[in-house]
Each structure stands twice: as C-alpha cells, then as structure tokens.
C-alpha cells in the first residue's frame, strides 16, 4: 500500500462531491463532465454555462496546484505497452476515441454516473458504473499498461 494516500483522496472526494452538490442545488444540473463536454459539440444546447464550468475546472486544478505543489508531481500520460505493437500517440488516440464514444452513448462517465447517478440511486448508473469499472480493471490486467 505504499501508494495509498487516504487523506488527500478523501478531501479531494469531498470537494468533488461539494462541486456536484453546488451545481445540483444551484442550477439543477448534473456535474457529469462527459455530458458537459459532449454537449458543447453539435447539436449543442446552452453552451455558455458548460464552457464556463470547464474553464473553471482547468483553472481550479491550475491554481490549487500552484498553492499546494507538494500534493502531486507533474502528471504524465502513459506510454503504449511494448507488447501492443502501437506507437504511444496511436494508443492514446484509440483510448480517447473510445472514451468519447463510450461516454456519449452510455450517457455518462465516472462523475455523471459514478458520483451523481449513484447518489440519485439510479439503476442505469449502477449498471454503467459496474460495467466500466469491471471492464477497465480487466483492460489494465490484460494490457499491462501500468
């Protein structure tokens, strides 16, 4: 368990929950990042608040990383596993494409289904969360990307 960081994980989780609560009780909207991102694209609906949310998301991470630099090192993206025979950009492009398509047709990601959906006791979200966690765990085991 040398990598386990319980306190920052819990505090960060509470902040993410608070962010979701603010958007829900303030604007009645679900803080699902794939939905907010995906609905900026055609056929777009109310794009302004979604753009504002996403810009603030980046700025929130940026400012906090400057204020609390000791919490993390510089995040890096993975490199393609040697056995895959793929260049890293190709690997990441496939992963990004699947993430985009999957979250739009599945109607949510870790935030929308995982936090908001489960908190609303949505059956659809419970099924989606079980599937994407399960499939991701299998994918990591099979590809050996870590």
């Amino acid at each position: 368990m040398e990598h386990f960081t319980p306190v920052p994980a819990l505090v960060g989780g509470l902040l993410i929950g608070l962010a979701s609560a603010v958007l829900w009780l303030g604007n009645g909207r679900i803080a699902g990042i794939s939905g907010i991102f995906g609905q900026l694209l055609p056929p777009a609906r109310s794009a302004i608040w979604r753009a504002v949310f996403l810009i603030a998301l980046v700025l929130g991470a940026l400012v906090t990383s400057r204020l609390l630099p000791d919490l993390g090192s510089n995040p890096e993206l993975v490199t393609a596993p040697a056995g895959s025979g793929l260049e890293t950009p190709v690997w990441l492009a496939i992963a990004g494409l699947l993430t985009g398509i999957g979250t739009r047709i599945g109607n949510g990601c870790t935030s929308g289904h995982g936090i908001c959906g489960l908190a609303r006791l949505s059956k659809r979200s419970a099924v989606a969360v079980a599937i994407f966690f399960g499939v991701a765990i299998i994918t990591v085991a099979v590809t050996g990307v870590v």
Binding site: A61, L62, V78, A95, T103, G106, A136
Partner: peptide, 27 residues
Amino acid sequence: LVGGAVLFGIGWGMSGICPGPAISLLA
C-alpha cells in the same frame, strides 16, 4: 448504456484518463 460503458471502460483502462481529468490536465 451497456455498450457505451464497455467502450469507455476499455478507453479508461488503456489510459487511466476519464473525461474530468482529461480536461483538467490542460492545467
């Protein structure tokens, strides 16, 4: 719903990136 969750699970497992972190990594 099921197919989308499967595709997303593969993408997430390949990269360790879901949409929230993908965008905040712009920082």
